[in-house]
């Protein structure tokens, strides 16, 4: 393990539209275990933000508590981050978003943080249609407290210590679909080719986007009986369609040639280009997506990919009719009614 992050980079390292290179999007050196799935997510976030030419300081990184919630420290060093309290990132992200609607909100959470202690907050931030990308690094286990079963662990599996998971697992994708999320996907930290376009599309999406990322815990949940181990996931993962993200400004040169798939146009003019593998694949019906997820699960497979996308989505500020200028930039002139108005108010109490 290294203790100092190398600043070396190739002199001709590619730059994006902002003239920034990949390394400008990196964070501090990860202190997670070597081989942790979360570090692969970090790297996917870095790549997605770099390729999208997101100005790093226009991102707010929000997290709760746990291994996953430490991850925002490892990407986008030029962005402010907020490592809040356990299970409460959704409310803090809501407040931050209320204060400044112009920033990009990247939420990073884990299965303990979102499916247990924070399940209530998770549900309500979905319902509230907050404009953000909410990622859960889902490994079915509590890492920082050393291996207890998480609420997302499949019923009937055992953890490393041999404890049996007795209860039904919570599927956050299904919950998000049921509660009205307008972008829902599942991916695998080991499948960057799938994950990066999903993150890019989710950032471009104007509405609540949820990505559940299976992210194996090498230390506490990578054993033979686990259904979240690298081996198990590799063997049982399936996808109904391959999605590619085509940014607004780029000419269309994606892996999948036009005509082969279906294009979904996002708010900013970018495209989500879908190449179907299963004939019955669709992204327009959240209830059907729930059925599909359950169907594959029954077969012992993990369905991944984009489950649902509503390109006409709205979000909290639109529903609230909040002014266009970020609330944190309004001056006293706009906020304080002044003494003349107060005279009238006083008179209403006589």
């Amino acid at each position: 393990m290294s203790f100092i992050k190398s600043k070396f980079h190739h002199p001709r390292i590619p730059t994006n539209d902002l003239g920034l290179n990949y390394r400008d999007y990196e964070g501090s050196l990860s202190t997670l275990c070597a081989g942790c799935g979360h570090d692969a997510i970090t790297s996917a976030v870095v790549q997605a933000c770099f390729e999208l030419s997101v100005p790093p300081h226009q991102v707010a990184k929000m997290s709760g508590i746990g291994c996953s919630s430490k991850s925002p420290n490892y990407f986008l060093n030029k962005a402010h981050g907020f490592n809040s309290v356990h299970g409460r990132m959704p409310s803090v992200a809501t407040g931050a978003n209320m204060a400044n609607r112009d920033l990009i909100y990247l939420g990073m959470s884990g299965d303990g943080d979102s499916a247990s202690i924070g399940l209530g907050q998770f549900s309500h931030v979905v319902r509230r249609q907050l404009n953000m990308l909410y990622m859960v690094a889902n490994n079915g286990v509590y890492g920082l407290t050393k291996g207890q079963l998480a609420a997302t662990a499949d019923k009937g599996v055992t953890n490393k210590a041999g404890e049996l998971s007795l209860f039904t697992d919570i599927d956050l994708c299904i919950m998000a679909l049921q509660l009205g999320a307008t972008f829902v996907a599942r991916s695998f930290s080991g499948d960057k080719k799938q994950l990066v376009p999903l993150i890019k599309a989710a950032i471009s999406h104007q509405g609540f986007a949820y990505i559940d990322i299976i992210s194996p815990c090498v230390t506490f949940n990578n054993h033979k009986d686990s259904t979240r181990s690298y081996d198990y996931v590799h063997e049982h993962i399936t996808t109904a369609a391959i999605a590619d993200f085509v940014p607004m400004k780029k000419e269309i040169t994606s892996d999948c040639a036009s005509g082969e798939g279906e294009d979904i146009c996002l708010h900013d003019g970018s495209l989500m280009r879908i190449r179907k593998i299963q004939d019955d694949y669709q992204t327009t019906d959240p209830m059907q997506a729930i059925v599909d997820i359950a169907k594959y699960k029954k077969k012992g497979e993990i369905l991944t990919g984009l489950f649902y996308l509503d390109p006409t989505a709205t979000h909290y500020h639109e529903i609230n009719n909040t002014c266009d200028m970020p609330l944190n930039q309004l001056t006293q002139d706009a906020l304080c009614p002044g003494s003349r108005v107060l005279t009238g108010i006083n008179n209403s109490f006589r």
């Binding site: 809040s84 407040g95 400044n100 609330l327």
Partner: peptide, 17 residues
Amino acid sequence: LAAIGIAIGAGWNGARA
């Protein structure tokens, strides 16, 4: 919990909350 979480998130981001 969420009520004060929202106020804190907004305060962090420079709004009076």
